[in-house]
Design a protein around this nucleic acid. Structure first.
Lengths: 209, 209
DNA sequence: ACAAAAACTTACTACTTGGTCAATATTTAT
DNA sequence: ATAAATATTGACCAAGTAGTAAGTTTTTGT
């Protein structure tokens, strides 16, 4: 009985909330937290403003929901490194997942990036410590592989930063990258090319190729 | 006579403008373009609001000046790759310069990152094409080295993105990185460690080590 | 059919914002 | 010394802003 939120009566609620969150994500990316107005979110969601504030208590709440959604998606999309995989496969999987997330959900990546750049003012404490734990844990795993002589002796934390930053870049700096490549949009090949490039480079950097 | 902007009479003007730009940079980072108010900039600069708008026509102008300052700094800080250096030294110099810029001027990096993430809405066309030219030129140089068998056959444009993103990350994600490292601030060693790590990884990735 | 709950909407308010203006003070050049 | 140029400031305003209140319509369970 605990999981009884999906009654028929909630459908409109859930649907509207989803529509609002999608519109809000776009607005927060384009205008920032302060620049995105409840009205602009309403316009984009094609709902009257008061309706937005019927489903979400206030603007801060909408933003929190957007942030939460981002974190959930990453948690699910990246998941855990499998110790049984060994360093090569683990890094390959990690890069693959992270690049696909960047290309498939650039708005999430962008909102998160802006939040961190601005000092993580809205990010709840638990999200911060969760992240710290995640990195610590993964770093420990890499360190074991290093100690076992299974990969080059590189700082595992910085390695995680490297994978994180280089993959995230394709979402956050989309505009700049497309300008440089003289393109209007990413194409399907791009994802695969980026995965191949980063995997090659980083595996070689770790002495795994 | 053309360069006669430095008359004594301009001193106060220049000084005030500088004070305003520094305060504005901080505010733009912390609050974003829309969130930074002329009043908040004034408070931080310890000047009355009307004084701010005496030296800068409007808020957009202040922001443009901040952006311009960022681009100038990078232009000067990174400069050109020297073809005579060969790939190894060129990459070493590039990473070194870029990491130091990130650690020494994180606000600039942050403001630029936010501007790009939000779609480069305020960035003038000339800055975009300039950047495209810069990357094209550097990529061509790397390609020559590759063709000469002086380095591994990796996509030069993606290589530039990799160096760009991984170095920039330490400025933009300062907050998150410090949280993960459980630190309050970067220390002197950190710069050198990051330079060493990235140089090792990327040189090895390029088959140069 | 019908009452209760959920969804929607209009009108409003208190407050913040960028920017102007007119007046005053200070500095500069002669 | 003094007029012109530069710098400084407080008071003000029109345009937006988040959020509320109070009502109406629609949906739902019985």
């Amino acid at each position: 009985m605990a999981v009884n939120q999906t009654k028929k009566s909630s459908n409109i609620r859930v649907q509207s909330q989803q529509k609002i969150l999608i519109a809000a994500s776009t607005e927060f990316v384009l205008q920032g937290y302060k620049g995105a107005t409840v009205q602009s979110i309403a316009d984009r969601a094609e709902l009257p403003k008061a309706n937005i504030l019927y489903y979400f208590k206030n603007k801060e709440n909408i933003y929190q929901a957007v942030l939460e959604h981002t974190l959930e998606m990453w948690d699910q999309g990246i998941g855990d490194l499998d110790p049984a995989d060994g360093p090569k496969l683990a890094i390959e999987k990690f890069i693959d997942a992270k690049v696909r997330l960047s290309f498939n959900h650039p708005e999430s990546s962008k909102i998160y990036a802006m939040e961190i750049i601005q000092g993580a003012q809205h990010l709840k404490e638990f999200a911060r410590t969760y992240l710290r734990q995640w990195v610590r844990e993964k770093a420990k795993l890499f360190q074991q592989w290093i100690d076992n002589g299974e990969m080059q002796d590189v700082d595992p934390v910085h390695l995680i930063f490297l994978i994180w930053s280089s993959t995230q870049h394709y979402a956050d700096f989309e505009t700049q990258i497309l300008t440089i490549m003289n393109r209007a949009d990413y194409e399907d090949d791009d994802v695969e090319n980026v995965i191949k490039f980063l995997t090659d480079m980083i595996l070689r950097g770790c002495g795994l190729k």
